[in-house]
Amino acid sequence: MVSPRGFSNLLSSARFAVRSASSGANLEKTTVAQFDLSAYMVDKAHLVNAALDRAAPLRYPERLHESMRYSLLGPGKRVRPTLALASCELVGGDQAAAIPVACALEMLHAMSLINDDLPCMDNDDFRRGRPSNHRAFGEDTAVLAGIALHALAFEHVAAATAGVPAERVLRAIAELGAAVGPEGLVAGQIVDIESEGKAVGLDVLEYIHLHKTGRLLEAAAACGAIVGGGTDAEVERVRRYARHVGLLFQVVDDVLDVTKTSEELGKTAGKDVASGKTTYPKLMGLDKTRAFAEELVRKAEKELHGFDGAMATPLRHLARYIADREN
């Protein structure tokens, strides 16, 4: 489960500058307001964890469900579900409408991590400070748990979403499918595998990360806005915000991989370099990579201009949190 310690680098009670739109005007003014992102994320994570526990109960066959729950309910920041809930509220929706989508996103994310760690993929023995799923339950059970989580994600959105027009639910399901399918996460994964040990440029590297990591974050924001009743323009704006944040997430991952220890990361450090993968620090150097991360934060924040300032505050600071995270 998530604890506040996972967000210690945020300086919980620090004062942040928050840009908020003036009512009925095109001008924006800068105000200073207190926002505790750590408490906000922990609150959302507890809400999602409780919903996940209900959505994937322990039942027969026990070993399969234990494996599913091991990855689904293990330590994690719940960034994708939080992004969905915040985006729903950003467009004026009730977060309750986005809880099933938030759970589905975490199910799909857990599935992707199970797959990513398998010996035929990244071959990693640790995830989030614990043995990876296949090390804890065996490769056969891990593969089946991933398949089960993938199926459960779509079933859950269809069956558990209440009070939302059917066309919005259908649109969210299509968004999730596109995010993990042959034009989404899987596409990024296969290009990543094919690029190992090869000299690839920034264009290929960006494609990998926008699909392998960014596409699910993009879907989180878009789905939240969709079920929350956002207009097409609003959905596209939060999608672009999340696209920048998704690329930012991987850029920071690349930096952490070469600057942190395995103990600090909760997974094997230096794995990308050892496997011959191309990374942003490898192509750009650390200083330029960090500067690129700052540029992505600014672009993400720009997409939030014009939304209600108070409702946009969590997303502004979520982008900054991803840029400043330590694991």
Rank of each mutant, 00 (worst) to 15 (best):
residue 30 T to E: 11
residue 90 L to R: 02
residue 33 A to E: 10
residue 44 K to M: 12
residue 93 G to A: 05
residue 65 H to V: 09
residue 64 L to E: 04
residue 27 L to I: 15
residue 96 A to K: 11
residue 39 A to V: 03
residue 48 V to N: 00
residue 96 A to D: 13
residue 51 A to I: 05
residue 53 D to G: 11
residue 49 N to K: 05
residue 96 A to R: 14
residue 80 R to G: 02
residue 90 L to A: 06
residue 26 N to G: 14
residue 60 Y to F: 15
residue 89 E to C: 09
residue 92 G to M: 04
residue 90 L to I: 05
residue 41 M to Y: 05
residue 100 P to V: 12
residue 90 L to Y: 11
residue 54 R to P: 04
residue 32 V to Q: 09
residue 55 A to R: 02
residue 38 S to V: 06
residue 79 V to E: 07
residue 88 C to V: 07
residue 75 P to H: 13
residue 57 P to L: 12
residue 80 R to M: 05
residue 109 H to L: 05
residue 33 A to I: 08
residue 38 S to L: 05
residue 100 P to H: 10
residue 73 L to N: 09
residue 73 L to S: 10
residue 113 L to I: 13
residue 33 A to R: 06
residue 42 V to R: 03
residue 24 G to T: 14
residue 60 Y to V: 15
residue 105 L to Q: 01
residue 85 L to T: 06
residue 44 K to A: 10
residue 100 P to Q: 10
residue 65 H to R: 06
residue 103 C to Q: 07
residue 114 I to H: 04
residue 95 Q to N: 14
residue 101 V to A: 14
residue 90 L to D: 05
residue 114 I to L: 12
residue 60 Y to G: 08
residue 85 L to K: 03
residue 56 A to H: 08
residue 82 T to A: 14
residue 37 L to N: 00
residue 96 A to S: 15
residue 110 A to Y: 08
residue 27 L to E: 15
residue 70 Y to K: 07
residue 47 L to R: 11
residue 48 V to W: 00
residue 56 A to T: 14
residue 112 S to F: 08
residue 40 Y to M: 01
residue 94 D to F: 06
residue 97 A to L: 09
residue 100 P to K: 09
residue 64 L to V: 07
residue 104 A to M: 02
residue 30 T to S: 11
residue 92 G to A: 05
residue 44 K to Y: 07
residue 44 K to R: 13
residue 42 V to E: 09
residue 106 E to T: 02
residue 109 H to I: 07
residue 103 C to N: 10
residue 33 A to T: 11
residue 47 L to M: 14
residue 60 Y to A: 15
residue 50 A to R: 12
residue 55 A to N: 03
residue 112 S to D: 06
residue 91 V to R: 03
residue 31 T to N: 14
residue 37 L to I: 09
residue 64 L to K: 09
residue 97 A to S: 15
residue 105 L to E: 00
residue 52 L to F: 10
residue 64 L to A: 08
residue 79 V to W: 11
residue 83 L to H: 02
residue 70 Y to Q: 06
residue 25 A to M: 13
residue 58 L to H: 07
residue 30 T to I: 14
residue 85 L to H: 08
